[in-house]
């Protein structure tokens, strides 16, 4: 893919058809993890990471790799911003802070984002990540993004 408009087109098509499969495939790393996107009843994006052997960081517990959880949260924040801003350009991460609260089991993992502040150049996003119960997050993150 060499044209930024193609990304925007993929998001636009998903918006029209409700089929998010192409969104999952547009970023190779997100496809490697298996990140999926859907919309909640409120219209807000909800991100889903189904359990996958390759995402394990500790085989004995077993637990998801901390980097996988970090990657899921960062990718969710990026897609959330692209979705809500209807933007063609991909936001660039300036900084990313993650707190690991519980070990991530080999289970369905969910995450939801909130844009805390959006200026013309910088956005601040918070992300919650949970498995069985949204009230018991396994990780939370906040990040600044450069918009262009």
């Amino acid at each position: 893919m060499s044209d930024p408009a193609e990304l925007g087109q993929i998001l636009r098509t998903a918006r029209e058809t409700g089929d998010f499969e192409p969104v999952m495939g547009m970023v190779p790393y997100a496809a490697l993890l298996g990140v999926r996107m859907q919309l909640e009843q409120t219209g807000e994006p909800l991100f889903h990471l189904p359990p996958r052997e390759e995402n394990i960081g500790n085989t004995m517990l077993p637990a998801l790799h901390g980097g996988v959880i970090g990657g899921l949260l960062e990718h969710s924040a990026i897609l959330h911003l692209m979705w809500t801003r209807e933007s063609l350009a991909m936001p660039k991460t300036i900084d990313f802070n993650i707190d690991y609260l519980r070990s991530g089991k080999l289970q369905d993992t969910w995450c939801r984002c909130r844009v805390t502040r959006q200026g013309s150049r910088i956005a601040h996003v918070q992300v919650d990540c949970w498995q069985q119960d949204p009230a018991r997050p396994i990780a939370v993150a906040r990040a600044h993004f450069l918009l262009s």
Binding site: P28, Y29, G71, E74
Partner: peptide
């Protein structure tokens, strides 16, 4: 290529850097 985060610029994803640093 499987680690790309931006299909236009082909820059690898921040999540890869997170995994690398964590490890």
């Amino acid at each position: 290529d499987a680690l790309i985060g931006n299909p236009v610029t082909r820059v690898i994803h921040g999540g890869v850097i997170t995994s690398l640093i964590d490890s």
